[in-house]
Design a protein around this nucleic acid. Structure first.
Length: 660
RNA sequence: GCCUGGGUAGCUCAGUCGGUAGAGCAGCGCAUUCGUAAUGCGCAGGUCAAGGGUUCGAAUCCCUUCCCAGGCUCCA
């Protein structure tokens, strides 16, 4: 047999003896690579190290510390999880077990309807470590469909997968397990355990080990709430102990900055159970932050050519019949109130009401674009299990605007909108943005193809203009028009979807909105929906987590706290506070009733940007001792007037003590 | 809505086999007068989420409801 020549990623070629595998190739390149190699990629398709090479193949060796490598590790760890569970619970059925972001899961059905508890995780983890210590090889085998059905005869979920794939189903979930085709593949890592799987896997279980089982959860088979609910075990797995530690540290960090903890610790707001789930009351400190956010938003909107409107929280159902929402979204609305003059609903959105304002009189083309803005509070009956602090809540306030414009204005309007959105988000400390562009679902849409194309173009060009990285989500648009969603990246690298810009060809039609053009004829305007924060509550939560509670000075409820060293400095402390207050600074005073150290600590724990300490020297020289948040040492003897000027400047520029 | 786990003082949590509830922090009072992350002592604080059941006796066992956490599903 002739030698095999393969091409490596750098373009060089290498000739190998016939029958060589990916592992042989890695070994030929270097012993270190042979050791680090986890799987290979032939023509971009991941394969086991044991896979044979073919002449002319383009081959790449994949090591553990790569996205592909981690995915393989996670997938292989999931197999070991299933193996451990079948050892501990003989007769357990295992369903699917893919790699996911940061880890993996596996779904099980235990004999006799038994459930996992948190305590079981420890046992399972120990069993997994034993399997890894046994260093079992993962061996691939291929079978006909009939054979596959026989092998997995006692695994009903596997049988269902094999059956559906062999019938040509193209369910993504199934394809994670097996590839469509006349054969199915399986991996055996001990005589006692075999799993249906497309692979590839690490060469042996000994290559795994930097993992941790995280939690038990219920999950519907096939993600369908009408089908049985399985027991899902989630885990995380990494290529090294260091990577695992880094991940666990990041989780701990995220937990520390959980907004639900911070709102309590900082006394910002609460969710009294008397109100029912998903409804918050804002305490004074939280309300100050919120007011600052709203004031800033209003000021920017005013400057941006928006007109403010106000609409009621309650409406007759006729409105939602006109808008068409009722038939679609009734489930998400609070139930109707039947009154003698009709049926009323809490409003779940502001758009239809803004349309009524537009329609309240004849509109001229000269008025367009007409930008209506409202901090509109809406109520949506989110299902109980979906509520999550401020992030998913039942009563919330949208910074909602609807822009009515002519077709020839669409392009410019969208471009300036995008700029406006990013500019406002930057003022809140976000610097990294990405976007998603959702395009037409060909099966479900209203409006002409022409207008869809025009609007999609306008959105695309705006994204290009600002160099915003974006992904196209084909068919993801609402039926009424294409949209851009903007994600921000926070201080610890998580992304949050905040803003949205949506084209709407439906409302203008349903509300019969018109304007009189320069040609004296009636035309239909285009409507844009856009929210910048999305919801104030959610944005507030995101901000808290982004800053870990250390809000920039302009947003801090208490910007400065003045502490006197002894009570004969109390009067001067009050003078300092009054001076700051006169300049619009929010300032508190903590007089000398308990030791200074304790008062400093209290102020620090409240994350107050500036703690001022005043004693003998300061009274004499009209100075303050400045202890800035995030700074190791205090600065003594700062002239009061200098401090006032600095802090006023910082507030105006949306700065924080940490910036200096 | 579904699965699992929870709900004990304002917060964080302990409470053994079913025998009427405990700590730290916070709060209040008194003392302390102190130069940068916890001054001391004392006091008060509870329908053990709510309702029902079992029991001589329930924070503890059972049922229902509400709320919370993590998932699933959903998210106009």
């Amino acid at each position: 047999m002739a030698d095999i020549t393969v091409e490596l990623p750098d373009g060089t070629t290498r000739t190998m003896p016939p029958g060589s595998t990916v592992a042989d190739l890695a070994g030929a390149i270097g012993p270190r690579l042979r050791k680090d190699a986890l799987v290979g990629a032939i023509g971009g398709h991941l394969v086991d190290l044991a896979a044979p090479l073919g002449d002319g193949d383009q081959v790449r060796i994949v090591t553990a510390a790569s996205a592909e490598g981690r995915e393989v590790i996670r997938h292989s760890t999931a197999h070991v999880l299933a193996q451990a569970v079948t050892r501990l619970w003989p007769g357990a059925h295992y369903a699917i077990g893919p790699a996911v972001e940061n880890g993996f899961y596996y779904d099980f059905e235990l004999p006799g309807g038994e459930r996992f508890t948190d305590a079981d995780l420890e046992r399972i983890e120990a069993e997994m470590r034993a399997i890894m210590a046994e260093d079992q090889p993962f061996t691939r085998s291929e079978h006909s469909v009939e054979e596959g059905l026989r092998i997995f005869a006692d695994q009903p979920f596997k049988v269902e997968i094999i059956t559906s794939v062999s019938h040509g189903a193209d369910d993504d979930e199934d394809l994670g397990e097996v590839e469509a085709g006349p054969t199915v593949s399986a991996y055996t890592n001990s005589p006692a355990f075999r799993d249906l799987c497309r692979g590839p896997h690490v060469p042996s279980t000994g290559r795994l080990g930097h993992f941790r089982l995280m939690r038990v959860a219920g999950a519907y088979w096939r993600g369908d709430e009408n089908r049985p609910q399985l027991q899902r075990i989630y885990g995380t797995a990494w290529e090294s102990a260091a990577a695992l530690d880094a991940y666990l540290t990041q989780l701990a960090e995220a937990e520390k900055r959980d907004h639900r903890r911070l709102v309590t610790d900082l006394d910002l707001l609460s969710f009294p159970s008397e109100l029912g789930g998903g409804l918050a009351v804002w305490h004074p400190r939280g309300a100050i932050i919120r007011k600052e956010m709203e004031d800033y938003s209003r000021a920017r909107h005013l400057a941006g050519g928006y007109e403010f409107v106000v609409t009621p929280h309650l409406t007759n159902q006729r409105l939602y019949e006109t808008s068409g929402h009722l038939s679609f979204y009734k489930d998400g609305m609070y139930p109707p109130m039947e009154l003698d003059n009709g049926t009323y609903y809490m409003k779940p959105m502001n758009c239809p009401m803004h349309c009524l304002i537009y329609r309240s009189r004849a509109r001229s083309y000269r008025e367009l674009p007409l930008r209506l803005f409202e901090l509109g509070t809406v109520y949506r009956y989110e299902r109980a299990g979906t509520l999550h602090g401020l992030m998913r809540i039942r009563g919330f306030t949208q910074d909602d605007a609807h822009i009515y414009c002519r077709e020839d204005q669409l392009q410019d309007e969208i471009a300036s909108l995008l700029e406006f959105v990013m500019s406002v988000l930057r003022a809140f400390g976000f610097t990294e943005f990405t976007a998603n562009l959702s395009t037409k679902d060909p099966k479900k849409y209203v409006g002409s193809d022409e207008i869809w194309e025009k609007a999609t173009d306008a959105l695309t060009q705006a994204l290009e203009k600002f160099g915003l990285p974006y992904e196209i989500k084909k068919g993801d648009a609402a039926f009424y028009g294409p949209k851009i969603d903007i994600d921000v990246r926070d201080a610890i690298g998580r992304t949050w979807q905040l803003s949205t810009i949506q084209c709407d060809f439906n409302h203008p039609e349903r509300f019969d909105l018109e304007y009189v053009g320069s040609d004296n004829a009636r035309h239909r305007p285009i409507m844009l929906h856009r929210a910048l924060f999305g919801s104030i509550e959610r944005f507030f939560g995101v901000l808290l987590e982004h800053y870990a509670g250390n809000l920039p000075t302009w947003l801090s409820p208490e910007q400065v706290r003045v502490l006197s060293v002894r009570d004969d400095h109390d009067a001067y402390a009050e003078t300092v506070a009054a001076t700051l207050r006169d300049r619009g600074v929010r300032v508190g005073v903590d007089l000398a009733s308990e030791p200074l150290g304790g008062r400093v600590r209290t102020a620090k724990m409240a994350k107050i940007p500036y703690v001022l300490v005043v004693g003998d020297d300061d009274v004499a020289a009209r100075t303050v001792g400045v202890n800035a948040r995030g700074r190791a040492a205090a600065v003594r003897g700062v002239p009061l007037d200098d401090f006032v000027a600095d802090v006023v400047r910082e507030i105006g520029s949306h700065g924080a003590p940490e910036d200096e």
